[in-house]
């Protein structure tokens, strides 16, 4: 019998991944590293600023993707981004930035565990709406705290990061993105990757196979929110000023989601590529129209869902399965 033949055949063991998959990532970071030193001419300052916000967008998208890998499609990213921003605004007044930054992120991470715990059994649109509602609750609370605490609806001044030195801020953002990418790669190479993927593709089956779903879902929340909050710190420290309406806006939850989906879900490079393309597109459009430049996110999201299910990464790796980093 032919199947009996199969039974005796042995498998060629393939490595989980090869170092070659790291080359595009290396290229991305190489380019990002030399960018400030390029002869950018008279608009150098403006371009460096766009590059800075591109890095922040990439941090947010990649951190959102890490949570999505565990099947939790969140609309609460703005909440953790905002908690990072507000945490830094308040803590930065009483301690040096390098202490305020991780502490603000830690607080956001811990708050995310609360959200994670109560939404454990929710999925799909219920999960999306619950996370959206959570963001609004956080925003309303911050907005209604006494003005002396968090500035109320008017907002809050933020201590400038690194004395407002644009180039230093850029490299700090570069460092945070590099850290985020390393975390993402570390997850990809660890048991977390298998747990996340299993939960996403069949939660009950994962449990039958012994995956401690609660623990891994919460871990995804913590890691994702911690990193998102670091992005929030960078944003707040760059703009000197934050207010609840903009910081916790739905747009800040949708942008990372769109960026990841457009770039390529569940990959490290995809969200970073997506951020680069979308940020540049947004900026170009912003230069010609004052309002509504976020239209690119709506358009890109629709077109991606209808015609590009695996995003940019799907274009780059047409027809290949698995082994993506």
């Amino acid at each position: 019998m032919s199947r009996a033949m199969e039974t005796s055949r042995t498998v060629t063991r393939r490595p989980d991944f090869t170092a070659r998959a790291l080359v595009p990532l290396g290229l991305f970071f190489g380019l990002a590293l030399v960018f400030p030193f390029l002869p950018l001419g008279t608009r150098a300052e403006y371009l460096l600023q766009i590059a800075f916000f591109t890095l922040v967008a990439a941090i947010l998208a990649l951190s959102w993707d890490i949570l999505a890998r565990s099947g939790q499609v969140s609309l609460a990213h703005a909440a953790f981004y905002g908690l990072g921003a507000y945490g830094f605004a308040l803590l930065g007044k009483v301690m040096p930035w390098f202490a305020a930054m991780p502490l603000a992120a830690l607080i956001a991470g811990l708050v995310s565990l609360i959200l994670g715990a109560v939404t454990l059994r929710l999925s799909g649109m219920y999960f999306a709406i619950a996370t959206l509602a959570f963001t609004e609750v956080v925003r309303t609370i911050i907005q209604n705290l006494p003005e002396s605490v968090a500035g109320g609806a008017n907002g809050l001044l933020v201590p400038a990061l690194l004395g407002g030195n644009a180039r230093a801020q850029y490299f700090l953002a570069f460092g945070v993105l590099l850290f985020t990418a390393l975390v993402s790669l570390a997850i990809r190479r660890s048991r977390l990757h298998h747990a996340f993927a299993a939960i996403r593709q069949g939660e009950e089956t994962a449990r039958v196979l012994g995956v401690s779903v609660v623990r891994y879902k919460l871990a995804a929340f913590f890691i994702s929110s911690f990193l998102a909050a670091l992005g929030g710190v960078l944003f707040a420290g760059k703009t000197f000023f934050i207010n609840p309406l903009e910081t916790f806006s739905l747009a800040n939850s949708i942008a990372p989601l769109t960026t990841s989906i457009f770039g390529g879900l569940y990959t490290t490079l995809g969200p970073m590529l997506g951020a680069t393309v979308l940020r540049v597109a947004e900026e170009l459009l912003h230069n010609s129209v004052k309002n509504g430049y976020l239209v690119v996110y709506g358009l890109v999201l629709m077109l991606t869902i209808l015609w590009l299910p695996r995003g940019l990464m799907g274009l780059l790796r047409r027809g290949k399965h698995g082994g993506e980093l």
Binding site: V11, H194, A197, G202, T205, A206, L209, V211
Partner: peptide
């Protein structure tokens, strides 16, 4: 049957081996 649809056959089985018992390395 409930395979994890986006995983390879080998990855499917790896999930069982990895989480079914404590202390199994990847």
């Amino acid at each position: 049957v409930r395979p994890f649809p986006e995983m390879t056959v080998h990855e499917n089985v790896t999930v069982g081996a990895l989480f079914g018992k404590a202390g199994v390395s990847l």
